[in-house]
Amino acid sequence: MLRVDRLNVIFGLGAAKNHAVKDVSFTAARGDSFGLVGESGSGKSTVLNCISGLLANWDGTIEVDGSPVFHKRHMSFYRKVQMVFQDPYGSLHPRHTIDQTLKEPIAIHRLGDANRRVDRVLREVGLGPRFRFRYPHQLSGGQRQRVAVARALILEPEIILLDEPTSALDVSIQAEVLNLLQEIRAERNLTYVLVSHDLAVVSHMCDRIAVMNRGETVEIIDRRQLQSGSLKERYTRQLLTASKGYDRAAIDQFQDF
C-alpha cells in the first residue's frame, strides 16, 4: 500500500546543512499499522511530512498503492492519504464551525451530499449531530481530536498518517482516541503510519515499528521484540528502559547516541 525507499531530506545549505532524514526505507501493506518512534530531532515527523506532501524537497521514492508520487501531488492523492495532527487546539480553524470544517473537503473535491456525509462521519467518531454547529473553542481537547479524525475520514482515504495524535491529550482521553483509531482501522481496513515518542502507544497500535535517531533508522522491529526485549541495538534498549519509569541506577548508564 505504501512504500518508502531511500528517502532523504536535507534542510539548509553550506554550514547550516542539516541532513534531517537519511536513507529511510519501509513498507506498509494494506490494513497495516506502521510505527515511527524516536526522540525529538530524529526525523520521524519529517518522514511523515514528505509522505503527506507538506514537504517538497525530498529525494527517494514514495509509492502509494503501487504508483509513485511526485513532488506536486495530484488531487486524487488527497483522497487516498490523509493526516491527523498532534495539537487538537491548532489543527482546527478557530473561526469555522465543525460543520464548515467538515464540508470544506467535500466542496473541494465536489463530492456532493455534504449533509449526509458530515452526519455520518460525526457519528462514526462518536460525536453525533449535537456537535455539528459548535466552534472549536466550545469543545474539549479530546472532542477536537475526534473532529480532526472525522476530517481525515470524510474523504474516505486508504492511508491515514498520524502525527503524535494523542500526545497533547490527558491519558484518559488518549485511551478513548486510541480505541477510536483502532476501531476505525478495523472497520475501514485502513493503513496507518503512526509517529510517536511514546513506545507504549506505538506498541499498542502498531505491528511493525521503525526506531529512528538523528535521521536514520536504527532498526525495524515488530512489537513482540519490544515486549520480549530481544532488541539488537543499544539505542532501542535504552529507549525501552527509559520508557519504564524512573530508575536512578539505570540513568547513570545512559549514553548519548
Partner: peptide, 10 residues
C-alpha cells in the same frame, strides 16, 4: 525527551 527527562530528574 524521555531519556533527557530522566537525566534531569536524576
Amino acid at each position: 525527551d524521555v531519556t533527557v527527562q530522566l537525566q534531569v530528574l536524576a
